[in-house]
Nucleic acid binder design. Sequence first.
DNA 1: TTTGTCAAGAGGAGCA
DNA 2: TGCTCCTCTTGACAAA
Length: 300
Amino acid sequence: MGCNGMASPFFPPNFLLQMQSPHDDDGHPPSSLSALLPGASCPTPQGFQGVATLLGSRPMSFSGIAEQDGEEAGAGGEDDLSDDCSQVGEKKRRLNTEQVRTLERNFELGNKLEPERKMQLARALGLQPRQVAIWFQNRRARWKTKQLEKDYDVLKRQFEAVKAENDALQAQNKRLQSEVMALKGRDAAEPINLNKDTEGSCSNRSDNSSDINLDISRTSAIDSPLNSHHGRPFFQSIRPAAAAAATMAHLLQNPSSRSELQCPKMEQGVVQDHENFCNMFCSLDDQSGFWTWSEQHNFH
DNA sequence: TTTGTCAAGAGGAGCA
DNA sequence: TGCTCCTCTTGACAAA
């Protein structure tokens, strides 16, 4: 059966033989394939059409072995053929396992079917070239469907990972905001005099704005985000909640310095300083709003 | 009888 | 213009 070894401009002489099942290593066509091509050792295109017609007219079991029933094989003569050599009223039949195996191996080599390869496969498998082309089309569609399913699974896993990370960050954000609120509550219960460096200078409060700045400079970590939050991304500096917590911790851990700030004669100044401190947290509130928006904005 | 799979039909788009 | 491909659909068939 020289057909399977026929030289091709596209494939080596034994190309199709290599596409056969592993037990065809001896170079002989598989017995099932021989059974597919009864009496057609090397069909010419015309002879091939006859074989294909014969095969197409044969009932084929799911195992793919054409039944060797002479009456069945002869059923439906040339008169019943349509233009594409298919039989009028012909029932669809599945390709046999050997044909499918060979087609699968060819598909693995390349999912696009060149005309020469189509003709060679059709001759070797006893199919019409159109059948081979249709099989490749359907196979590409199945491959694409499977690929879409894989891509969907990958994207789903990625989404779940990102969502988990987002949830963790949201929880952390809430926790930090609640800490800030708690610290603000403690601050309201214990007024703080920020004017500790200006003891005895209450009379010239209009001139000691630098004192306020000096105090705030101790919390320079939060100075920038508080005073310039309109101009740049907030996350370029320290997180305000953490900075505020550090500031509050510093002030609360130094009650002596805070008490020495208490000036009975400066209640007015203390009130104003307290207002400044509260304004700092009001700015913090603004920042936290900006912070929350930033995170939400990044995840939507 | 229903459901899933597969071969094949139909129609439109892209290309040389 | 013919060919090929893609997509959707149809019909046959086997299994549940």
